[in-house]
Design a protein around this nucleic acid. Sequence first.
DNA 1: CAGGCATATGCATCCATGGTTATGTAGAGC
DNA 2: GCTCTACATAACCATGGATGCATATGCCTG
Lengths: 104, 104
Amino acid sequence: MATAFEVLAEPNRRRILDLLLTTESPVGDIVDAMALSQPLVSKHLRVLREAGLVEARVDAQRRIYRVRADPLRAMDEWLQPYRRLWAKRLDALAEHLQTMEDDE
Amino acid sequence: MATAFEVLAEPNRRRILDLLLTTESPVGDIVDAMALSQPLVSKHLRVLREAGLVEARVDAQRRIYRVRADPLRAMDEWLQPYRRLWAKRLDALAEHLQTMEDDE
DNA sequence: CAGGCATATGCATCCATGGTTATGTAGAGC
DNA sequence: GCTCTACATAACCATGGATGCATATGCCTG
């Protein structure tokens, strides 16, 4: 199964997730917001679903999609050690700028 | 320019970054660790470089690469609102564990 | 010159994305 | 029961891009 990294490399899928972050919504609303064909949106939703990033609830003829953030935790954990790096860089910002000046 | 999302969709590039997280290193070391051809590694390094995720320092005939985490901040910020979603679940879990303790 | 690396070229392959069209299916409403 | 809505899915096509391989070359520096 695809990792969150691979699935979210696609800008449209990130947009879909961002949409669902505000409100859970049926496929039709997503289609309207994305300006993509319904089959294509369903295709993206399927990829997101199979990666566990969204889940669907049945409401009459509609499927209401909402975010499932669990797979993002793996991404977050991968990110963890790097987070310290930019924290360090903030501390050394003045020094870094000085170095850049010296390079010129 | 490619976003960190797109660049890091590639497993080998994530591995390279993880390697450089431990120690900055010349290309040769990366080639050995990755079991990929030198041109291919250089190609990946170029993609990482153009995304600002690594930077090279010249040391004699060698180029020492190291991580630059700055572009990961954008990824981290995108992740931010989703973090609360699993935080909610964590809160629920903590509460649950507390309940279990209380039961003892 | 030899070592270390970037870059180019050419090639094969595969996958992803997008489009369209059609069909299946489940429920809503008449 | 019939039709409409909402969606999933399939099948096709076209295209672009990514990855990998191999080979060659250029460049810089010890």
